[in-house]
Every structure is written in structure tokens, then in C-alpha cells.
Write a protein that binds this DNA or RNA. Structure first.
Lengths: 123, 123
DNA sequence: TTCGGTAGTTCGTAGTTTGTGAACTATTGG
DNA sequence: CCAATAGTTCACAAACTACGAACTACCGAA
């Protein structure tokens, strides 16, 4: 097994971050990692969506977040401890990540609230 | 030729926007459209990058921006007049797009400035 | 030590998306 | 009509993605 690759701050790109966060599942993962006090394991996210995410897919999502520079993953025994690289990132990219996550969150709320209120073209 | 499809505001998604703007060329295009006073044509962007963008590729980029809901394109004679849907978008998504564009811009500046100053692992 | 379970990774593959040249459509001007 | 210009669509290769199956890594118990 290869060691986990983490890009240095200088190698992190805006396009990499945006691509990683253009997937709602990944945005959701990052948001939850940020909210959490300590580190989060990968398997904490198997049931995060409406239907369960296969663990191979989840592994790829974590790899994407890691290689975009958004999270840091450390092996602790059997599991991976994932933390957000938020300080470095916001020092370099400003409010980029937080506004992306805020927008995703707002959209989720909208979906929950709107299933009845929206959804009609001639309301 | 099909008419140009523009999603209604309600059909615009965060992931769509982020995916569209995760490409630096598209981000650059949108930024230039926003900066411009009037509308911009597609062919104004053929030479925007270090190497010329093929026009079929450019057409796809505009389609991506349009279908993500970021721009509005109207046929005027032979050409397309592209304008940003910034008001609607920011009313719905807040500072999302502007912070993405700001981040891209900052990164460009960094690239121009940093070719000498950065780029060494052991400085 | 070996076995069993848990946590993630890698592989193989089917399906999707993307970039691009070639061919096409639409509009304007002679 | 023809030619030129602006952009679109088609076709196809290359790159990417999701996911089941098989694998690796680690820990605890026997």
C-alpha cells in the first residue's frame, strides 16, 4: 500500500479544490469533518447519502479530497483519521472553501424545505 | 441547430456551478464577461490562454457555462452575445461565484509573480 | 504464531465525460 | 448565387468515474 499523498500548500490549486467540491457527497464529507471536534474516519460516511455509498467509492472520494489538499489523513491503527486543512487553506485561498460549503448547505436546506413549496412551474 | 438552452434559476445547482468553474479557462471567460461593459462574443476568447483554444472546444466551454446557468447567450446576427447572469445568481447563491472568481484571479497573479519567488522546495 | 474481524485500498471493467478536427448550419455582404 | 464569418454538431480517442471483487494492513484473541 502506498503512503498517503498530501500536496504541499503550494501545490494546491483553485481548480483542484473546486473540482473536489463540485461533488455534493465530497462537500458533505468535508463539511462534517469541519464540524466535528476530532478526526473522522472514512466509514463514518457510509450512510451519509440517501443510499449507502460503496466503500470503494468512498475511498476514492477521500482520496480526491486529500489530493485536492482539503483534508489530511493519518493512519491510526486500522482506521484513517481525517482532519480538515482549513487553516492553511483559508490563509491561502480566503473564503473560497467556506462559501462553497455554505452554498452546498443552503442548497440542502432548500431541498428539504422546497419539496412542496417549489417544484411547480406554474405555481 | 437547436435553440440555446438556459436553465431556470430554480434548476441551477451548486455542483453545476462549481463544476463549470473548476476549469480555469471557463472561470477566465466568465470573469472577462463580467468585467466587460457590454456582451462578449465567443470568438473573443480564442487566444485567451497560452495556446489558442480550438473553436469547437470553446463552443463546449460556453455551453457548459450556459447550462450551468452562469451566462446567458443570445444570437445577434452571426455571433453570440454572452452576458453574465450575475444578479440572479448572487441573489440565490450569495458570494459563491464572486469568491470563486476572486480565488482564480489571485491564483493567476500568484503564477505571474511567483515564477521566481516560489517554486523551490528548499528555498 | 495463526485466525478472524475491521478499515481502507487497489484492480478490472463498464459507462460517462472531455477535447478536438472535420463537417455542418446560420447569417451577412457582395 | 457565392464567399466569409461565427458558432454548432458529429465522431472518436483519451481521460475519468463508480463500484464489485479481491486485496493489504492492523489489532485482539487464542
Amino acid at each position: 500500500m502506498r503512503p498517503l499523498y498530501h500536496p504541499s500548500l503550494d501545490d494546491i490549486t483553485v481548480e483542484g479544490i473546486l473540482h473536489a467540491l463540485s461533488d455534493p457527497v465530497r462537500a458533505h464529507i468535508l463539511a462534517k469533518i469541519l464540524r466535528a471536534d476530532g478526526a473522522q474516519t472514512c466509514s463514518a460516511f457510509l450512510e451519509i447519502s440517501d443510499r449507502p455509498i460503496p466503500k470503494s467509492t468512498l475511498s476514492q472520494h477521500f482520496k480526491a479530497l486529500r489530493e485536492a489538499g482539503l483534508i489530511r489523513s493519518e493512519r491510526k491503527g486500522v482506521e484513517l483519521h481525517n482532519t480538515a486543512r482549513c487553516q492553511e487553506i483559508s490563509a491561502r485561498f480566503g473564503p473560497l472553501v467556506s462559501s462553497v460549503l455554505a452554498a452546498h448547505l443552503a442548497q440542502e436546506h432548500r431541498h428539504k424545505a422546497g419539496a412542496k413549496t417549489r417544484r411547480t412551474k406554474r405555481g
